[in-house]
């Protein structure tokens, strides 16, 4: 049984294009990175709003800390140019 499968798999690997083409994989990487930073910003944003509610002068600092995880997406964007 296994002997009969091996040549078939080999043939398939040589002839067929990959399931996820490079550009699609790059798009996926950016998307997942965005999801991750979104999750990170959720917590930071909540804390920043709390801090601003107590003390107005925290607005600038809160804003910077909130968008800090956005760097993840920018780094992931590099992948698009590499591919």
């Amino acid at each position: 049984m296994i002997e009969t499968i091996a040549p078939v798999v080999n043939a398939a690997l040589q002839n067929v294009a990959p399931a996820i083409p490079p550009s699609a994989a790059a798009a996926l990487a950016v998307g997942l990175a965005a999801l991750g930073s979104g999750y990170a910003e959720r917590g930071i944003g909540a804390a920043a709003v709390g801090a601003v509610a107590e003390d107005d002068s925290m607005f600038g600092r809160g804003l910077i800390l909130t968008v800090l995880p956005e760097t993840l997406v920018i780094l992931a964007l590099v992948v698009v140019f590499v591919v």
Binding site: A46, A47, V49, G50, A51, A53, E54
Partner: peptide
């Protein structure tokens, strides 16, 4: 639970 929000405010107070 919204720990982040509550704790930011509580720490300030």
């Amino acid at each position: 639970s919204n720990y982040e929000y509550v704790i930011a405010r509580v720490r300030s107070r």
